[in-house]
Amino acid sequence: MRAIPVIAGLTFREAARKKLLWMALAAGIAFLALFGTGLHYQAKDLAARSHAIIRRPALESMLMVGLYATDLLAVLMTVLTSVDTLSGEIDSNTLHALAAKPVYRREILLGKWLGLAAMLTAYVLFMTGGITLISNRIGGVRPQHLANGLVLIWLECLLMLSVTIAGGTYLSTLTNGVMALGLHGLAFLGGWVEQAGAALHSPRAVDVGIVASLIMPTESLWRRAAFEMQSPLINALGFSPFSTLSVPSPAMMGYALAYLLAALGLALWRFSRLDL
């Protein structure tokens, strides 16, 4: 297992050298600046016009909007950074010289996974931390259980990472990207169907959403993260991307974790047997 940190370092350095890391950071800073500016004017105008009872939920909603956008960006970032890491190197024969060294295939795969996971962890921390800090400074609001939410968003990224890497052992880069985003799209739609079903008291619609979450549990992790982070008042606002009328259960979180491990296991199994 001594090659894992070498490959992880290589993967991380590759992102930095290819300017991927810096581009993500620049885009993140621009995103935070836009969010901060928007929130600043909203807070100012709300302070002039409305009572604190209205002001607080409005700013808390903005905080959730920021976190929701961060979550979506993080998922996209996960797919974009990891989609090419195996299939691209298999297609270009870059793996030949690496895989012929005294290293196990599992070390290469886990190294890549860890390198990308480290980068995504830094990204999620930076973005979520930025949104939280800005909301607290400008709007005076903060997420309820930030640590729980953060862990769930992080898990969502690691789940997506594992699925994309597993896909890379079967599919070409482009097809893998379509598969990963397609699955997340399905989960995303499923989440909405579930919420709408809960709002309209349609248990069968809720079931459809749950089935979608079983096929791909990324969105259910966000829904739970939103439930953990928002104040009960926002939840009462009704049907929104972060409303949690139907809260994903702890069992679903356990399922998501098992899904992550299964995807990683599948990737390891397949990559160890792959003809390069």
Partner: peptide, 12 residues
């Protein structure tokens, strides 16, 4: 030691 025929290295 191994030099593959159609090798590519990490060109960065």
């Amino acid at each position: 030691g191994f030099l593959p025929e159609h090798f590519r290295f990490h060109e960065w």
